[in-house]
Nucleic acid binder design. Structure first.
Lengths: 197, 197
DNA sequence: TAATATTGCTAACATTTGTTAGTATACTAT
DNA sequence: ATAGTATACTAACAAATGTTAGCAATATTA
């Protein structure tokens, strides 16, 4: 009889959630079936329900896991005693790191949250909106201090977040530059722009 | 008996494709059913098949419609007699314009191409890869000319394309700045960076 | 008006989907 | 070894899906 293999400090549910992340990332939430997931876990579909409540619960876990990490981080950054520009750079580096090291979950949380159902959906959207508002506020502060050029802060946030989402392509590319090189290139371009001044 | 309303120079199929774009954008390709689409068109699901071959055909039309426009544009830009940096800016402005004015199609083409099936899938992926290579080559040229700072060109392309994809959020936001303001903010930040120099 | 081609509708189909019930097997603790 | 719990399996379900067949209504053309 097949059994879900676990290693210390991780429940069988953790294994399922993690496999779900990979699968949802690859096929999209809707296109990924519970039978697909079961196969990737090495078990029959019905057996999954000894550990989880529903398919949607898997999406909840993924989305809110990520959202919580980001909320936690922005709390931290806001209370740092550094310039606004440095705060922005810290957040950028955090996003890049998350996208490099927790690729699947972050990606899924970013692209598949639409398929959450209320009340989780509204909850998630609110958190997202809040996060962006707080990020934008830091940028606004930087503009007031003349550390950051006078641009529309919400637009800047949107550019930053989506640009970093592009690390998806890096993950899939055959000739990857190193994670460190990627990070420095991204920071350099997002903070300093393309132009050689 | 309900009939699909058309205006001059657009077939009934065009109407369906366009409604499909909106629906696929909203729900995702997999989650959008033919019955949903039929309702949005104002007709029964089966009736759609008098005009289209399959659901996937709709995705083909959308993806390759967009891909062709981009290929056409990069042909044009490559042959321009201007600096590399200007070429990059032209492409950026084109992408922004596409994302503002053909939101649904571009968005769908960007996020839902995974659900294409071979041979269309490979074909699309190749076109995409080629496009990015050519875009990167322009940036490389700019680096050689010292117009553009020495960064990893493929990474720069990835940042640019994804950053512009963020216009999605702009479309959905309640308090939109104008399209012109958005464009100038984006160009300013992507070309010149955040920092106030 | 008659003839033909378009376009729509109803009904049905085979699949695939998430999920549950009931039961068997494996692990854990006494 | 035995009892009890955790985990797996088989079988089946209702619902939703893309699509087709056959026929009715409407346009278009002659």
């Amino acid at each position: 009889m097949a059994r879900i293999q676990i290693d210390k400090n991780s429940s069988r549910k953790d294994v399922i959630v993690s496999k779900a992340a990979a699968l949802f990332r690859e096929k999209g939430f809707k296109a990924a079936s519970m039978r697909d997931l079961a196969e990737s876990v090495g078990v029959e579909a019905a057996s999954l329900y000894n550990h989880i409540k529903s398919k949607t619960e898997l999406l909840h876990e993924l989305c809110f896991g990520v959202a919580n990490r980001f909320m936690h981080k922005i709390d931290e950054v806001e209370s740092e005693k550094v310039t606004a520009l440095e705060k922005v750079e810290h957040l950028i580096r955090f996003h890049i790191d998350e996208m490099i090291n927790h690729y699947e979950e972050v990606y899924v949380s970013d692209r598949e949250w639409k398929h959450l159902s209320d009340p989780y959906l509204s909850n998630f959207q609110n958190q997202r909106r809040m996060y962006r508002k707080r990020f934008a506020a830091i940028i606004e502060a930087g503009i007031k201090q003349k550390e950051i050029k006078p641009i529309d802060a919400p637009t800047a946030v949107l550019i930053l977040l989506h640009a970093i989402g592009g690390i998806e392509s890096w993950h899939r590319s055959t000739q990857k530059i190193s994670a460190e090189a990627l990070t420095e290139n991204m920071v350099s371009m997002l903070v300093g722009g393309l132009v050689n001044k």
